[in-house]
Amino acid sequence: MSALAAYTTSTGEAFQFWVLGTVAVIGALCTVFMKRAVHSALCLAGTMIILAVFYLANGAYFLGVVQIVVYTGAIMMLFLFVVMLVGVTAADSLKETIKGQRWLALLCGLGFGILLVAGIGNASLTEFNGLGQANAGGNVEGLAALIFTDYVFAFELTGALLITAAVGAMVLTHRERTERAKTQRELAEERVREGKHLPPLPAPGVYARHNAVDIAGLLPDGTPSELTVSKTLRDRGQVRDVSTEALNDLKALEQRAEDRLERTNSGNSGNSGNGGKSGEASK
């Protein structure tokens, strides 16, 4: 690794930089521009792994490993958990709602980037030392020596910070149950008292082609009933509507069946396309 101390890097590293750097930038762009949060998260994870590689290439072995373990392994998984919790299938509309926000953002971003690049280009960074000497006793040992001497106070503080964060997360997400949970009997009685839905809620999953839980059942006139889907899914906006083509398929099927049975049927079994719920999931 003494080559790292050199004025320029090896050809291998240059190759690695250009290839992986490109991928990292693409990953970052995808993070920003992917419609679904889960895709963004995956792209970000990829970028982070590439960054871990770069850390390793720069002689920060400990950080490289931590990057993979903590960031990609823990933090991104946490992100994925939350994405699942909020609704994995929910897709964002990238349409801008605040007037001029996108242009301002792009303008600022462009200016900011140009300024940063110009600043770096301006700085005389032609000479650098490499980590050969610093990493001579081992990267981890070197870091440890610094952390537990010069930076010990900051290190202790980060410990406090982590504890605080853990407690904070619990406080924020934990909901104290203030009353006894209702028993099944009580729930039933309440339903009778309200008088809206005496029988159990209708089941979902007519014309199931997927996991039928998130597909609304159809009413006799062909319209989907949201009541058939679990409230959690409704809240998340994850009700998957019976798509228009599915209804059309159904109609075609009936038509063919009639044709085959040579039966003329004047009844209107068709249903006007009633989809359009899918776009609302981003709510």
Binding site: L104, A105, C108, G109, G111, F112, L115, L116, G119
Partner: peptide
């Protein structure tokens, strides 16, 4: 904020 940061850098 971002614009302000850019101006500061400038």
């Amino acid at each position: 904020m971002f614009g302000g940061a850019a101006i500061l850098i400038a």
